[in-house]
Design a protein around this nucleic acid. Structure first.
Length: 316
DNA sequence: AACCTCCTCAACCGCGACTCG
DNA sequence: CCGAGTCGCGGTTGAGGAGGT
């Protein structure tokens, strides 16, 4: 048996909102608030719309202080840095960009920012960049990892690999690898199952970032679909300094994200905060790292402290 | 001018999470 | 604890505008 529809689709208007509907909705909410019940709101407001549709229209368009128009470089960088760290959790990302909605950011990422980054890569490499390809799901379906034991997980997840094997890092992420690696935790996709503290306190190197963006150099050609990552030490550092990575590195430098030396492992750990450099764009100017930590570990209810707009909404 | 293709973004959909009786 | 109702999220769709031929 299927799920009951949220509203009677035969009797609700769909598609684009007219200015008249907009003003009706805005007027009603200005006067009465949402009343904590979107389902009954359209009826009360005299709208022939589904409650969900009203909610969406309000949150993404009519709500006060919504910012439309071009994203700044700083916003780009925040989106990028958070995406690399936490994946496509648009609501959390949106909470860090006042006036921007999750829908906005999602659209922006899918239509522009992704391409902006793609433009920095040679075509040959773009084809094998799962993170950016249109059909790539991030994080990967949980089923992919559900049967993995720790060692296989960490040897097949490029990001995890870089945390454990490749980089001379000492931060909580390595603890994650050794202490949080249980069958249970691995039954979830990487981005979801990781220790929340890891998300916010991990310092990722350009190489890690590069991996998470563009995938590893590991081969996935075996018949059972398993991947054989090529260890960095096997290939040698030099081979990793490919044109693609150079280009990526240039991008990072262009955005003042990293100051990377000739050897990529010379990246300046101090300059990297939640993901990226704090040298020129100190991320704590945009959000509090501890808050992010809380957000991720405690779920959406904690957003109240951070997202002004959503605070208003929840207060209504 | 007409047609076609591509791109953008508002809106929809389904599902998991949450709340409450 | 359970189930119904609702919310919120992220993935996807498609209308319509822009640009090219």
């Amino acid at each position: 048996m299927g799920r009951a529809p949220c509203c009677d689709k035969a009797n609700v208007k769909r598609g684009s909102w007219s200015t008249e509907e907009d003003s009706k909705l805005k007027e009603y909410i200005d006067k009465h608030g949402t009343g904590g019940n979107w389902i009954s709101l359209p009826h009360k407001a005299g709208l022939k719309r589904c409650g969900k549709s009203c909610r969406l229209r309000w949150l993404n368009y009519l709500r006060p202080n919504i910012k439309h128009g071009e994203f700044s470089d700083e916003e780009d960088m925040i989106i990028f840095s958070l995406y690399v760290n936490i994946g496509s959790r648009w609501s959390i990302i949106a909470a860090q960009l006042p006036g921007r909605t999750d829908n906005d950011i999602k659209n922006y990422w899918n239509t522009k920012l992704k391409k902006k980054l793609m433009g920095l890569l040679p075509l040959s490499h773009q084809r094998k960049t799962p993170f950016l390809s249109s059909n790539h799901q991030n994080p990967p379906p949980s089923s992919i990892y559900s049967d993995y034991n720790c060692s296989s997980y960490y040897s097949t997840n490029p990001l995890a690999l870089s945390f454990t094997d490749l980089e001379p890092i000492s931060h909580p992420s390595t603890n994650f690898a050794s202490t949080n690696c249980t069958a249970t935790s691995l039954s979830l996709p990487f981005y979801q199952n990781q220790d929340p503290t890891m998300v916010s306190t991990s310092v990722i190197s350009p190489m890690q970032c590069y991996y998470s963006m563009f995938g590893s150099e590991g081969s996935c050609s075996s018949s059972d679909g398993s991947c054989t990552p090529i260890k960095q030490e096997e290939k040698g550092y030099q081979s990793y300094m490919s044109t693609s990575f150079d280009e990526f590195n240039k991008f990072m430098l262009n955005y003042n994200i990293y100051g990377v030396g000739e050897n990529f492992n010379q990246w300046d750990e101090k300059s990297c905060g939640l993901g990226f450099a704090q040298t020129h764009y100190p991320l704590e100017n945009y959000y509090n790292v501890e808050d992010i930590k809380q957000l991720i570990s405690s779920g959406s209810s904690s957003f109240i402290n951070i997202d002004e707009n959503k605070t208003e909404e929840k207060g209504m």
